[in-house]
Amino acid sequence: MASVPRIGLIYDVFDAYEWSDGDPPDADAEFEPIETVDALADALRRCETEPVRVGTTRDLQQQLCEGLALDAAITIAEGQGTRNREAHAPILLELAGIPQWGSDALTLSITLDKACTKDLAVQAGVQTPAWTVFSEASEVTASALPADFPLFVKPRYEGTSKGILPASKVTSVEALRQEVERQTHLYQQDVLVEAFVNGGGEFTVAVVGNDPPEALPALQRAVEPTTGIGVHALERRGGPDRAWSYAIEGTLSAALEAQLAHDALRIYQKLECRDVARIDFRVDAEGTPFFLEINPLPTFAPDGTFAIIAELMNRSYPDFLADVLARGLRRLQVLPSISANPAIEQ
Rank of each mutant, 00 (worst) to 15 (best):
T82A: 13
V197A: 02
Q80M: 14
I309H: 11
L325F: 13
C47K: 07
A29S: 14
G209S: 02
R278D: 11
D280T: 05
A340V: 11
T305F: 08
A258K: 10
L321D: 13
Q178I: 13
I76L: 07
A215T: 00
L9K: 10
A27P: 08
V283A: 01
G328A: 08
K114M: 03
R83M: 08
E214M: 11
D59Y: 05
T288Y: 01
R53T: 10
L120I: 13
D284T: 05
T75M: 01
A222V: 08
V173S: 09
L112H: 12
G102E: 09
T111G: 01
A87W: 00
Q80D: 08
L40F: 00
V126I: 06
D211L: 09
V197P: 01
D26N: 11
C116Q: 15
Y246N: 11
V223E: 02
L176I: 11
L92Q: 03
Y187G: 04
V197R: 00
L219A: 04
V193N: 06
K169P: 11
E174N: 13
T184F: 04
T227K: 00
E272Y: 06
V37C: 06
R315C: 14
A343Y: 13
L120F: 13
A261R: 07
F281L: 03
G67S: 04
A175Y: 06
L40H: 03
A343T: 15
M1E: 15
L265P: 02
E235Y: 01
V126P: 02
D28R: 15
T82K: 13
V324F: 12
A340D: 14
A29F: 05
K118A: 01
D12P: 08
G230T: 10
V173Q: 14
P342E: 09
S337R: 15
A195Y: 02
R236F: 02
S103A: 05
D323C: 10
D241C: 03
T111F: 00
L95K: 04
V283N: 00
E293Y: 05
M313W: 14
S143I: 12
G55M: 09
L271P: 02
R221L: 12
E345C: 10
L40I: 15
E179W: 06
N341S: 15
T141L: 06
V193L: 07
V231W: 00
S135C: 09
P298N: 13
Q183D: 10
F291A: 05
E311N: 09
H88Y: 12
R83W: 07
L271N: 04
T184A: 05
A130H: 04
W244C: 03
V223T: 10
L60G: 01
H88D: 15
G199E: 11
P51D: 07
D275I: 09
G8W: 13
A261N: 09
F291I: 12
E78D: 06
